[in-house]
Every structure is written in structure tokens, then in C-alpha cells.
């Protein structure tokens, strides 16, 4: 089943055309990595997919439901009510975590399920504790984010996203804000999630990680997808010159 289907998305900031014509679909259980040089529009694509930016043209469906349709070549968003439901299908993990600094670890994780999904507090709390345990921070429930390392904060952020029970989880460079010795712990969490068939779309610069974890790799450049396919094809035998140049530069 297709969880996400984006067709011919276009997005400009004033005169700057950032996404030129991008279509992407994600199957249930699939792990997709997005690679590409800085400024190629990876974050913008994720932000459009998570409704943080509005797209100019193109359509988007989550689990078969229309989030964005197109009328006369312009994107038209679904009603507020529909979007409120659709927003529960996905989660997003930010590069710089964006935890709520005035909430403890536990409250960061349970507050949204209780207050936006109206779920029962006891049940949410049990689930959250199990999630945090699984992330290796079960002993930090009463800490504030500022008392945690970057890696721990990112694990809280992942738990916070998972507590909403999303069908698909987006990551925008989840390790870029971390010290090199801390990236490993986050990549391990992502590998665990992948092995549990969590559907994920991950923007990353960690090539080895992408090769190991992804079912499919998408390479973006200047607002287009220039190559996509199995990691062993795109990463190890790229057909496109720009992909080859980018990968060469990274491996140097």
C-alpha cells in the first residue's frame, strides 16, 4: 500500500525555484534515503510533505487520502479538518531536535498524544516509557532537555514522534547537529526502526548508513530527482555524472 504519493510538486521562494518537478511515492515498510548537495531542495521537499511549507503546484496523498489536489495547475489544500486527520499519518524529526525546553523528557513525549490525539493518559504514559526505554533513556524521564546530550535529545525527539503512532516518519539530517561520536547512537536507533519495518524517509549525508539501511535511494539536485533506485545501484554504480561527482567528493 502506498503511504505517500507526491506528484509533480513545484515550490518557489519569491523568484527562487527550489522544487522544479518532483514526484515520489513511498510504500508501507519502505526505507527511503534522500541524498543531494546543499541547496538542492531536500529540506524543502520534506517541509512540503509535512505541511510546514505550502507547495505551489502538484498533488499529495497520504494513505490514499487527498491532502493536496490540483486545480488549473495550482495546488489546493484539503479542508482544515481533513488536514488535521492527515497530520496524524506522519511524523517529523528535525535536525536540531526542537524539543520543548520547558517540558521534561516524559512530558515532551506524552503531551501531544494526550492533548492533540485525545488519548488516555495512563496508556500513553506506559507506551512512552516503553519507547524511551527502548531508546536507552528510560532513566531520564524527569530530566529537562537542556540536561541531556545532543544524542539523547535526538532520541527523545524520535520517541516523541513515534508516540504519535505515525505511519511514516520523516527525518531531516537527524545527525547533522551532533558531534561525530554521537551520530552512531542515532544511526543505530534508525537501523532498529528499519528492522521493525517502520516506514521512513531520511535526508542524510551519511552515505554508508544510507547504503546499509535503505530500500531505495533518491538523489536530488537543483530541484529535480536526478537518479533513484536500489542503494547498490545509485551509490555504488551511479549513472548520472553529478551523482558520481557528489559521491566522489564525499568519499574524499
Amino acid at each position: 500500500m502506498k503511504l505517500l504519493e507526491i506528484n509533480n510538486i513545484k515550490k518557489s521562494f519569491d523568484d527562487l525555484e527550489v522544487l522544479k518537478d518532483i514526484s515520489i511515492s513511498v510504500e508501507e515498510g519502505e526505507v527511503v534515503s534522500i541524498l543531494g548537495p546543499s541547496g538542492s531542495g531536500k529540506s524543502t521537499l520534506l517541509r512540503c510533505a509535512t505541511l510546514l511549507e505550502t507547495m505551489d503546484a502538484g498533488t499529495m496523498k497520504y494513505c490514499g487520502e487527498d491532502a493536496v489536489t490540483e486545480v488549473n495547475g495550482r495546488s489546493v489544500y484539503a479542508s482544515k479538518q481533513d488536514l488535521k486527520r492527515i497530520i496524524n499519518y506522519f511524523g517529523l524529526v528535525f535536525q536540531n531536535f526542537n524539543l520543548f525546553p520547558h517540558y521534561t523528557v516524559l512530558k515532551n513525549v506524552i503531551d501531544a498524544p494526550i492533548h492533540t490525539q485525545k488519548r488516555e493518559k495512563g496508556e500513553v504514559e506506559e507506551e512512552a516509557k516503553a519507547l524511551l526505554e527502548q531508546m536507552g533513556i528510560g532513566d531520564k524521564l524527569d530530566y529537562y532537555p537542556c540536561q541531556l546530550s545532543g544524542g539523547q535529545q535526538q532520541r527523545v525527539a524520535i520517541a516523541r514522534a513515534l508516540a504519535m503512532n505515525p505511519k511514516i516518519l520523516f527525518f531531516d539530517e537527524p545527525t547533522s547537529a551532533l558531534d561525530p561520536e554521537l551520530t552512531g547512537e542515532i544511526l543505530k536507533v534508525l537501523r532498529d526502526l528499519a528492522s521493525k519495518r517502520m516506514t521512513m524517509v531520511i535526508v542524510t549525508h551519511e552515505i554508508d548508513f544510507a547504503r546499509g539501511v535503505s530500500d531505495r535511494v533518491i538523489f536530488m539536485d537543483e530541484g529535480y530527482i536526478v537518479e533513484q533506485g536500489r542503494p547498490e545501484d545509485v551509490i555504488d554504480n551511479p549513472k548520472n555524472d553529478r551523482v558520481r561527482a557528489f559521491l566522489n567528493k564525499l568519499s574524499q
Binding site: 509535512t50 510546514l52 497530520i87 528535525f94 536540531n96 526542537n98 520543548f100 501531544a112 492533540t116
Partner: peptide, 27 residues
């Protein structure tokens, strides 16, 4: 209050009023 706080709240489904009362106002 950083923009990221609003974005996190939005993705987690908080309404505008909830975002202000629970996230922005205390900070």
C-alpha cells in the same frame, strides 16, 4: 521563541491556541 518550536508543535498536531498556551507562553 525559536521558529522550530512552532514547527514541532504544528507537526504534533497542536492547534494555534494550544501552541500559544502550552509552548510559546511559558517560554
Amino acid at each position: 521563541v525559536p521558529k522550530g518550536q512552532y514547527e514541532a508543535a504544528h507537526v504534533l498536531g497542536y492547534t494555534k491556541a494550544q501552541t500559544f498556551m502550552k509552548i510559546v507562553f511559558p517560554q
